[in-house]
Simulated scan of single mutants.
Amino acid sequence: MTNKFTLSLRSFITTLALFLVFTVAVNAQDKVQEGAVKVTAHMKSQLSLNDGQYSRVLAINKDYLQKVVDNPGATVVQKSKNKKVYDEERDGKLKSVLNDSQYKIYVANRSANARVYKEVVDM
């Protein structure tokens, strides 16, 4: 009888743990999607993006935010180094999507944009 109880308790705890892991993963995905939409909407108004640019910039921002959020166990120094790499990667992708004048505006407003990204990551 004790074995049945122990087995049932183990099954319950395993199910609960899996549920929690799944819930956290879904919440992180929602955070990334919501953040990417917020940042891209800010950029749309700032840079006058057309619909094609908007969808491509949204994908770039979603990919960028996913990488920034997915750093479990990384130290502050590692996160900072990784973020620099991700920033350069994102900027290169944006340069291929934006026209010259839009990219100049983007670069000129990089610090303001960084605040929006930080706000989103800290949500």
Rank of each mutant, 00 (worst) to 15 (best):
T2V: 15
K4G: 02
L7V: 03
S8M: 07
S8V: 02
L9P: 02
S11K: 11
I13C: 06
T14D: 10
T15H: 10
L16P: 00
L16D: 08
V21S: 13
F22R: 06
A28F: 10
D30P: 00
V32L: 03
V32D: 04
Q33K: 14
G35T: 02
T40V: 07
K44P: 00
Q46T: 12
Q46F: 03
L47M: 08
L49S: 08
D51C: 03
Y54V: 02
S55T: 15
S55W: 00
R56Y: 05
R56P: 02
R56M: 07
V57N: 11
Q66T: 15
K67C: 06
K67W: 00
P72M: 10
A74V: 01
V77S: 15
V77I: 12
Q78A: 12
N82F: 11
K84V: 13
Y86R: 09
E89Y: 08
R90W: 14
K95L: 08
V97Q: 05
L98V: 05
S101Q: 13
Q102R: 06
K104T: 07
A108F: 06
R110S: 12
S111M: 10
A114C: 02
A114L: 07
R115W: 14
V116A: 03
V116L: 05
K118C: 03
K118D: 08
E119R: 11
E119L: 11
V120G: 03
V121Q: 02
V121I: 08
V121S: 01
M123V: 06
